[in-house]
Design a protein around this nucleic acid. Structure first.
Length: 361
DNA sequence: AAATCGTTCAACCGCACTTGA
DNA sequence: CTCAAGTGCGGTTGAACGATT
């Protein structure tokens, strides 16, 4: 037990993934699906342990990942869910389609915790920090960060301010419809995929307008038939036109190169994005899946999803730029769309929308 | 321009749980 | 029932980058 046996083997590569490795893994999964993660590296020709491959796929290569900034609504939802679920990131992630537990966890640790403290709310208990706690917290911040004044915790010196800070925050919780009853519901075992099939089903809109985000992408995709898929597996993990002055070695270097900055898909569809559920038995339903995909390398560290639409007569570079711009617009739009995210779906309405997502106990 | 510091996030580690022989 | 292999999850680390000095 403990450490996975495959990790004990020496010679296995660790650290950041190179584009070649990504390509191998991506091609393998899209072709064969996931049967047994421990056998994936061997079959895909990777010097990695299965665990590493799984993580890479789930957190990075999976085509249904939503990238970019968290919207205000997502932020609020995370805070609400964290109050109920605590650090159960995987469960929280199931309520945020396209987001991974790792992503949410990082976001929480790097941004939300700080934000809550600034509002005078203890991020662990979600209760107002007492004045002494606030002061202690401030001191901690000072110790840890003696030079960064702008990031200094806002001092909430009187109870009224504290109350206000929390009132704002607790309203989020109320708005979200989370109460004791819903908490119990949320704590029951969900039996649905974190990134469910309905995201790709026309006419089904169980997550409200939020699903627009994906459909906005998907409507631009050109579905491929099975035959095409079978014969068209030359996923092009080629370099995108360089926008910056990266040297050639930069883009090929194994470590620094792992700044994969763009993943292009011109089509995507799958029945379940929970990769752990994907196996050859479910046939991975990648029939409408990506036909071409390419990674690009930029100096920026952040990956942005860029969907390469197959529109005729437009240069691919233009398309990339345009789709990126569209993506940005959609990101902005999605914040608005997300405002109607049915938080009540976390509580009593869960079973009332035509799909019982919680196991009957 | 170089050094230092703070932040972010991809990836790893290790434990717990599940599954199947 | 036991044990080992496989999987999932949360905590932690460290490389890379941007900001500041």
């Amino acid at each position: 037990m403990g450490r996975h046996s495959c990790c004990l083997k020496q010679k296995l590569k660790k650290g950041l993934w190179s584009p070649e490795e990504d390509e191998k893994l991506f091609n393998h999964i899209t072709r064969f699906g996931v049967g047994c993660w421990s056998s994936v590296p061997k079959q895909a020709g990777l010097q990695r342990c299965g665990k590493s491959c799984r993580l890479r796929w789930i957190n990075y290569l999976r085509p249904d990942l939503k990238r970019g900034m968290f919207s205000q609504q997502e932020e609020d939802l995370i805070i609400s869910l964290h109050q109920v679920l605590g650090n159960r990131w995987a469960q929280i992630a199931t309520q945020l389609p396209g987001r991974t537990d790792n992503e949410i966890k990082n976001f929480w640790n790097s941004c939300l915790k700080k934000k809550l403290r600034q509002q005078g709310v203890d991020p662990n208990t979600h209760k107002p920090l007492s004045e002494t706690e606030v002061r202690e917290d401030e001191n901690k911040c000072r110790e840890a960060d003696s030079s960064s004044q702008p990031k200094r915790l806002r001092r909430t010196s009187n109870s009224e301010e504290l109350g206000q800070a929390f009132a704002v925050n607790s309203s989020i919780y109320q708005d979200s419809g989370l109460n004791e009853a819903s908490e119990n519901k949320v704590l029951t075992k969900p039996v649905f995929d974190p990134f469910p099939f309905f995201e790709f089903q026309p006419g089904v809109n169980p997550v409200g307008d939020n699903s627009n985000l994906l459909s906005q992408y998907h409507q631009n995709f050109i579905p491929l038939d099975q035959t095409q898929l079978a014969t068209n597996f030359d996923f092009g993990f080629t370099s995108m036109p360089r926008l910056t002055n990266l040297s050639e070695t930069d883009s090929s270097d194994n470590n620094s190169s792992s700044r994969l900055s763009s993943l292009f898909f011109n089509g995507t569809k799958e029945n379940s994005s929970n990769s752990s559920n994907m196996n050859s038995q479910t046939e991975f339903q990648m029939n409408n899946m990506v036909s071409t995909a390419s990674f690009s390398w930029e100096s920026g560290t952040r990956l942005e999803p860029m969907f390469q639409f197959q529109l005729h007569g437009i240069k691919s570079e233009e398309l990339e730029l345009r789709s990126w711009q569209e993506d940005q617009q959609q990101q902005t739009q999605s914040s608005d769309d997300f405002s109607s995210f049915p938080l009540t779906s976390l509580s009593e309405d869960l079973t009332g929308v035509g799909f019982d997502i919680y196991e009957q106990i």
